[in-house]
Nucleic acid binder design. Structure first.
Lengths: 194, 194
DNA sequence: TATTTTATTGACAATGTGTTATTTAATCAA
DNA sequence: TTGATTAAATAACACATTGTCAATAAAATA
């Protein structure tokens, strides 16, 4: 699977680099395949040899850096319940920090709708799995798990985009602290005292 | 300001109707000005007599229905603190219900990035104002107000889009109940016991 | 009814898309 | 290192969409 022609790797890397560069300079919507190809120093027809569209190129790039994050998280979290593990959240904000320009582009003012949607959906699925794992077969919560998961995902998404958009006003550790405080900190959220 | 030529009102209404129709049939990105004009039974050049772009037409339509919501909320809420007022949240979900197709289009799988961003930003501002009003000059909260506001806004946004995307699985009252439970229900959120 | 405003029509250049056939160049395996 | 294979460059193509414009027809208002 990794036995690709050196030229292919080169071209794809150049195209990815070009997109990641351009996306920090102008809204994603305004970027043309011609521009990406020019910046990558590759013929436009060559682009179509590798990707069917701009979206496909972006999707692959996002998938790659997303995989990095998942590995980071899995490496750090050791089966702790989510409300005890600071590391999930911290890894997230360090990840955002590392790919700052890219996330600013896809989550910010000229954000990419389907990417926002996908990210929110992904976090929701992730949180739902965590919640099911750790709530397990305890008494059914007052609030349905899918809604609980979506609530947490919404908060994560919102704080993440806020942080990126406002030029990282707090360090990742602090943001992680806020996030856990808000979503799990009070402890009663999962089984409300009402 | 409301003294517009009858033809102008007619044309703009037709264009708005056409867009709202089309947006339920295909992704917003895929809709052309030609299509909107055809559906509105108006010449394409006429479109440009009223709007500079597709986005401008959408923006105006959203602003109009958004104003409806604000009026609804203000009419119902009587200075109650946000965590006591069920009506804010309920008005929101009834509003989503009323303009279901439109919100499905702008918040869903093929959502419109800048609209999502704007909505989240708007809710954040709204929540921040509410929080400042009602927390007032009490002791400074552990979590900065902008972050608190963004957290609540994120939850509202996430539950709203989830509800629309999943074809309104609960009635508006129930969703409002969940939302208030999650964001204000436990009461300790504003001044965590930690 | 006369005047003003709006809408229609058909055309235009400009830009971007997606594809193709041909030529040139790089890579890989023997 | 050579020869076969694969990829990239090039130039051209039809097509769609955009934004604009001038001339004409139609409608509304005073």
């Amino acid at each position: 699977m990794e036995t690709l022609d050196r030229r292919v790797r080169r071209t794809r890397n150049q195209l990815g680099d070009a997109l990641r560069e351009l996306i920090t300079e102008k809204p994603y919507e305004a970027i043309t395949i011609q521009e990406i190809s020019d910046r990558a120093d590759v013929n436009r027809a060559t682009f179509y040899l590798h990707y069917g569209s701009k979206d496909e190129l972006l999707a692959q790039n996002l998938r790659e850096i997303f995989d990095e994050l998942v590995i980071q998280i899995e490496a750090r979290a050791e089966g702790k319940p989510p409300w005890e593990s600071m590391v999930h959240a911290q890894a997230l904000f360090e990840h955002l920090d590392e790919h700052f320009g890219l996330y600013q582009a896809v989550l910010g003012q000229h954000g990419v709708g389907y990417v926002m949607h996908q990210i929110l959906a992904y976090i929701t699925t992730h949180e739902e799995r965590l919640l099911r794992d750790y709530l397990g077969n305890a008494a059914a919560p007052v609030i349905p798990i899918p809604i609980l998961a979506r609530h947490v995902a919404g908060s994560i998404f919102a704080l993440a985009s806020w942080w990126v958009e406002n030029n990282r006003p707090y360090p990742p550790e602090t943001m992680a602290h806020f996030l856990l405080q808000l979503c799990y900190g009070v402890g009663t959220l999962v089984t409300p005292e009402n």
